[in-house]
């Protein structure tokens, strides 16, 4: 009986993991397959779909998405750090209510936020903001709560005695922020920014309302194309953007060292 149960457990675990990885493997295989029929034999594989990506049709949306994601992650990082600082470090009165307000966009589905922003921009006569500026603003609203929460968590985890130690050693408030607080919460700030980057780069539900011709993000370009065809070039686009995201995470990790935080040590 026990053996049967544990056998069932391992089989179900393997099946679930297969379920999780299957679509990813299929997409990678499709991106390398010569025709629209997916093949898993490496002998037939080709890079031609990747070569086809080097065209403004795909490059322009990619550059736009990357540009927006970089701006969004920087702005969310700075705004999130400011909010988290006031709440978690200064512990200003009412900090819990303030945190709840900063996190409130999380309670609203993205599609609802999208409708609200598109109605706001259109009826407030801000048509000019549709496209890139609107995308940036909407993505900031989306990612700011995540960044604020992550940075606030790392400030809460920051040992207040270190601040007092610096203080008794004669460090002014700015010196303490610059030499003690910031270096120690840097991993939190960078993981917040990485999160913001990924969410912005992959976003569909907000972007779908805000793109305009010539200012279309990569995921929206892909889903528009998918309406007509499931061409393997789409697989190549998807794999390429996944690689781009992984490279970005790697870069942010190098700069901010947030995996050290996850593993519970610094340096």
């Amino acid at each position: 009986m026990n053996r049967l149960l544990s056998g069932l457990f391992w089989i179900s675990l393997c099946l679930i993991l297969a379920f999780i990885t299957l679509p990813l493997l299929v997409v990678v295989a499709a991106s390398l397959s010569p025709s629209s029929t997916v093949t898993f034999s490496p002998a037939d594989w080709t890079m031609k779909w990747y070569a086809a990506l080097w065209a403004s049709k795909w490059l322009d949306p990619f550059i736009l998405s990357a540009k927006i994601a970089v701006i969004v992650s920087l702005v969310s990082g700075v705004l999130g750090a400011l909010g988290a600082y006031a709440i978690a470090y200064e512990k200003c009165p009412g900090s819990e209510a303030i945190m709840a307000f900063l996190l409130s966009p999380l309670a609203v589905p993205q599609i609802v936020k999208g409708v609200a922003i598109v109605i706001f921009l259109s009826s407030a006569g801000l048509y000019a903001l549709l496209g890139t500026p609107g995308l940036i603003a909407a993505h900031i609203v989306l990612t700011l709560p995540f960044a604020a929460r992550m940075i606030a968590t790392s400030i809460y985890n920051f040992d207040k005695n270190l601040d007092r130690a610096a203080q008794i050693l004669g460090a002014s408030k700015w010196q303490r922020i610059r030499h003690v607080l910031l270096p120690l919460i840097k991993p939190g700030v960078f993981s917040g920014m990485t999160f913001a980057f990924i969410i912005s780069f992959n976003n569909i539900p907000l972007s779908v309302f805000l793109v305009r011709p010539g200012q279309t993000t990569l995921p929206i370009t892909v889903i528009n194309y998918m309406e007509y065809s499931l061409d393997p070039v789409l697989a190549a686009v998807n794999v390429a953007s996944l690689i781009f995201i992984l490279a970005t995470i790697f870069l942010f990790e190098k700069l901010g060292g947030f995996s050290a935080q996850i593993h519970g040590g610094s340096k």
């Binding site: 040992d159 005695n161 270190l162 007092r164 130690a165 610096a166 203080q167 008794i168 050693l169 004669g170 460090a171 002014s172 030499h179 003690v180 270096p183 120690l184 610094s266 340096k267």
Partner: peptide, 28 residues
Amino acid sequence: PEKRNIGLVFQNYALFPHMTVAENVGFG
């Protein structure tokens, strides 16, 4: 506190984890 010119040794030491021993000692 920063204007009192007092030294304080903490129970948990409160060493700055991102600084070397020399940087810690030279901080003040």
